[in-house]
């Protein structure tokens, strides 16, 4: 018998005795009546999010401030260009990395800097030595201040995590309400064939491993900037 069959056999054997259902604990606040059906809608319990775009944008901005994400609403492409140029100038970017996409194409043309494209195979040290990685995304999540990226929407696995500054270009209609909405969107878009990596990025890379003091840029980007058009 294969190891697989043996393990599954042991599991089936073990499960012949039923386990007590959860929710029957005693103690303050412990006893919540069990749900009749297995819950699938978590919205009533998760943090509240408003319905309108303005409310979502305000919540995203608030979460971003807390996470130390730089979140900026931009009106049009001209404003995006101005802001990108200012950023490149302030940080002294010499080389950027990006992938092909409607917004990213525009951005790198506007910046006019040497560029590493991660569309096809690329050289790792080229990407590693770039000053910023500019990507698009699948969605922004107001509830948590997160960006959803995948290998398909954001130029592979490494582009959004290797360079020291990750710049996200998003469209206004990508700003979703909450996590359930984000997962629904991923399912709708990729349900038949998921990318090999999807990621919910919430703020720049961080650690609290030394004396529980927050330090940004542990291994991933030290900075995360999001432009939402």
């Amino acid at each position: 018998m294969s190891e697989r069959e043996q393990i599954l056999g042991r599991i089936r054997e073990a499960l012949r005795v039923a386990a007590p259902k959860p929710g029957l604990l005693s103690g303050p606040g412990q006893r919540v009546p069990p749900h009749e059906k297995r819950p699938t809608d978590f919205r009533p319990w998760l943090p509240v999010v408003g319905d309108s775009f303005e409310e979502r944008a305000a919540l995203f901005a608030k979460n971003s401030a807390e996470l130390k994400t730089d979140f900026q609403l931009v009106a049009n492409r001209d404003e995006l260009q101005t802001k990108l140029l200012a950023l490149a100038h302030a940080e002294g970017w010499k080389k950027i990395a990006t992938h092909a996409g409607e917004l990213t194409n525009y951005a790198f043309a506007a910046l006019g800097l040497p560029v590493v494209q991660t569309g096809g195979r690329y050289k790792l040290d080229e990407l590693e030595s770039s000053d910023a990685g500019i990507t698009e995304c699948d969605a922004l999540v107001a509830q948590t201040g997160s960006v959803v990226v995948t290998t398909r929407s954001a130029g592979g696995r490494a582009l959004s995590v290797l360079p020291p500054h990750h710049v996200v270009l998003a469209r206004r209609d990508q700003l979703l309400r909450d996590l359930p909405a984000a997962f629904t969107a991923l399912k709708q878009r990729y349900g038949s064939s998921y990318p090999s990596m999807m990621c919910l990025i919430t703020g720049p890379s961080r650690t609290g491993d030394i004396e529980r003091i927050l330090v940004l840029g542990a291994h991933g980007p030290k900075k995360l900037t999001i432009f939402c058009m």
């Binding site: 090999s196 999807m198 919910l200 990025i201 919430t202 890379s205």
Partner: peptide, 14 residues
Amino acid sequence: AVSCYNTFIAGPRQ
């Protein structure tokens, strides 16, 4: 509220 990177991996490079 949620950790910084929640990564979902569905296979090797496709």
